[in-house]
Design a protein around this nucleic acid. Structure first.
Length: 616
RNA sequence: GCGCCCAUAGCUCAGCUGGAUAGAGCGACGGCCUCCGGAGCCGUAGGUCGCAAGUUCGAAUCUUGCUGGGCGCGCCA
């Protein structure tokens, strides 16, 4: 049974409870593909090309041959965009920055895109886009089927390992983080055209099952109605008996042997346990609006039959070393407490296998059987060293070789407002469903107060969307590597960078569109007012932001984007009347802008796994 | 002992891989309802970006060394 260091955490389960460790495992972890996202609708993309050409013309023969100079075009708060490349470039070619900037501007051909370009400070090039250029780009993007979303240049098969709860144990906030982050990344990568294979690495195998099965036997073997309503209670009861009753502990150990030996009765009980849990998790995923399905479960038991062969292959490759009776791999670059090499134990003294072997089998399965190119592990930061060692070993074994690569999508712990691990007042882990229930109840109270005219059913539906959205957004909106403080009041405050704020902006736009009557026509768009200009600029950045999330695997960038659009719209809303516009043309144009904003906002939220109701 | 992560306004967080005056929300203070949803908008106050060096035209961002907090380091997962 093991001592489990007093916590009895499951493999992945432990992940979320502890604090951050490593952002970047050392081996087989680099991302070789290009850093620059090419987004068609983003005006910064054509501008980069124009600036490249201008730089080449300005430098003439002095231009560097091999690497095309980067104009370093960024968004700016003092212009629509700014190009900083001239200053670094001037240094490289020995010119004065301002002179070079002037030469670049002189050679620049951007009349169709820019209203104005000027040089500022030591050599910044500031630019402002033409309203008609923004209009054209927006209309083009808006007329496409998937407005604003663009596929990756070379789609690949990606495996995402996330959620990973343990059978007969309640999911806690750590699992919730993995589930929410992983699900958002799955949506983003799919939207980019990749083939995403979700893998829910269920903790459905191992020594704890001896005591769980024995406990099940005690509760009612042969009873057709096996209810595990409270998973944690079930686990705790089994655990308590195991600790207190030596006879039970003995039976449990024998049961493990039976399980591993394939005893039919034992396997039947095991399946019962697993089925109960899968059903429960499935319900939780449905309620959360998570895309994981039962067919995505690839639990530890899946790999169990592969483990002997994994060992045999490691042996054939000369990677195995016997140490204190255990079989180990010593990947280079890892040192132990004593300063010696650090082992990855792939077979224990007693001949059993641990999670390292299972993870190795998982990599082999994912690259060879599933033929995945990119392997993502949405697992808590404390496991970074373990994963780094597993990746290193898999690389040595040849199971992880370019172009395939693995990345640890690490995340920090969930903390309470006291900055300690998030727990209930009683000191217990917070149960997922009670969390969801509370979110919905709190949301419902607000909906009832703010919108009493909605019928009860709609109120409940909205409260569901808002409550779940609030939980997800709070989790996703800060950098995942950092610990995250769970705070109901802030989460459901509905102000600032929160899901309800964004959802509210969306609902308000839909309300306008409803009142307008006729269906909006994006071709009627004509950007004119400053607030329209700013909103248009934001909308066009969508594909670049999504590509950035694809690259960095950081959904909080998408949240930041959602917030900026919602803010830009609120600004537009205050300054530009839509339904009472000055002219019919202006009204149609603004309705088009509303439509594009609602679509983009809704789509961005959907990539976060958050619903955007039409009214709330 | 070795290694990894984190440190930005009173609080919770951004800061787009080195750009100009470090931005939001909450909280505080002050404005905006004859007008498309006030779950909104505008403004004021609030900072030695943990400390110290270094790299350079330019550093919250890169390097090194410290300090503080967290985590990991052989048969649990």
């Amino acid at each position: 049974m093991g001592q489990e260091k007093g916590r009895g955490r499951g493999r992945r389960g432990r992940a979320g409870r502890l604090a951050p460790q490593v952002k970047e495992p050392s081996i087989a972890n680099s991302i070789p593909d290009a850093r620059v996202a090419h987004a068609m609708s983003d005006p910064l993309t054509p501008l980069t090309e124009r600036f490249r050409a201008a730089i080449a013309a300005a430098l003439g023969p002095a231009a560097p041959k091999d690497a095309p100079p980067d104009p370093a075009i960024r968004r700016s708060d003092r212009a629509d965009f700014q190009a900083n490349g001239a200053m670094t470039l001037a240094k490289a070619v020995g010119q004065k920055p301002r002179d070079l900037a002037a030469a670049i501007v002189a050679a620049l051909r951007v009349d169709d895109l820019c209203a104005k370009v000027e040089i500022a400070g030591p050599g910044f090039i500031n630019g402002w886009l033409r309203d008609d250029a923004l209009t054209r780009l927006l209309v083009e993007a808006g007329e496409r089927e998937e407005a604003f979303l663009e596929r990756a240049a070379s789609p690949e098969k990606v495996v995402i390992d996330y959620s990973s709860p343990n059978v007969a144990k309640e999911m806690h906030v750590g699992h919730l983080r993995s589930t929410i982050i992983g699900d958002s990344l799955a949506r983003v990568l799919e939207a980019r055209g990749h083939t995403v294979v979700r893998q829910n690495h269920l903790g459905d195998w191992g020594t704890p099952f001896g005591m769980l099965i024995e406990h099940l036997v005690d509760l009612g073997l042969g009873n057709a109605e096996l209810h595990i309503d409270d998973l944690d209670a079930f686990y705790r009861a089994a655990r308590a008996k195991f600790d207190a009753d030596p006879a039970f502990a003995d039976k449990s150990r024998r049961r493990v042997v039976l399980l591993q030996g394939g005893d039919a009765d034992t396997l039947a009980l095991w399946r019962e346990l697993v089925e109960q849990s899968r059903r429960y998790f499935g319900e939780a995923y449905d309620r959360l609006g998570v895309t994981l399905r039962d067919s995505d479960v690839a639990g530890e038991s899946l790999y169990n039959p592969m483990l002997p062969d994994v060992i045999a292959e490691l042996d054939r490759k000369g990677l195995l070393v016997e140490s204190d009776g255990a079989l180990c791999v010593f990947p280079p670059g890892f040192t132990s407490k004593e300063g010696g090499p650090l082992p990855l134990i792939v077979r224990k003294q007693d001949g059993g296998y641990g999670y390292a072997t299972t993870d190795l089998a998982g990599i082999r399965y994912r690259t060879q059987t599933l033929t995945a190119r990119r392997l993502l592990y949405v697992v808590g930061a404390p496991q970074s060293q373990h994963l780094a060692m597993v990746f290193a070993t898999a690389t040595l074994a040849g199971w992880l070789a370019p172009p395939a690569r693995a990345e640890h999508v690490a995340f920090g712990s969930v903390l309470g407002s006291d900055k300690k691990m998030f727990k209930t007042r009683a000191g217990e882990t917070v149960k997922l469903l009670s969390l969801v229930k509370e979110a919905e109840e709190r949301a419902l109270a607000v909906v009832v107060e703010k919108n009493p005219e909605l019928d009860a059913e709609t109120q409940r539906a909205v409260a569901h969307s808002v409550g779940i959205g609030a939980i997800k957004y709070a989790d996703l909106s800060s950098d995942r590597i950092k610990d995250y403080v769970f705070d109901w009041d802030r989460m459901l405050a509905f102000e600032g960078n929160t899901a309800p704020y964004a959802m509210y902006a969306h609902a308000r736009i839909r309300s306008i569109l409803r009142k307008a009557g006729a269906a909006p026509d994006v071709r009627a768009l004509s950007i004119a007012a400053p607030a329209e200009h700013a909103l248009a600029l934001d909308l066009l950045a969508f594909p670049s932001v999504v590509a950035e999330v694809e690259r960095t695997l950081e959904p909080h960038r998408l949240c930041g984007y959602v917030f900026s659009i919602a803010t830009a719209f609120s600004n537009f809303y205050e300054q530009c009347s839509v339904l009472q516009a000055d002219s019919a043309e202006q009204r149609r144009s603004r309705l088009a802008l509303c439509e594009l904003t609602a679509r983009t906002l809704g789509r961005a939220l959907s990539l976060l796994g958050i619903e955007a109701p039409d009214r709330m």
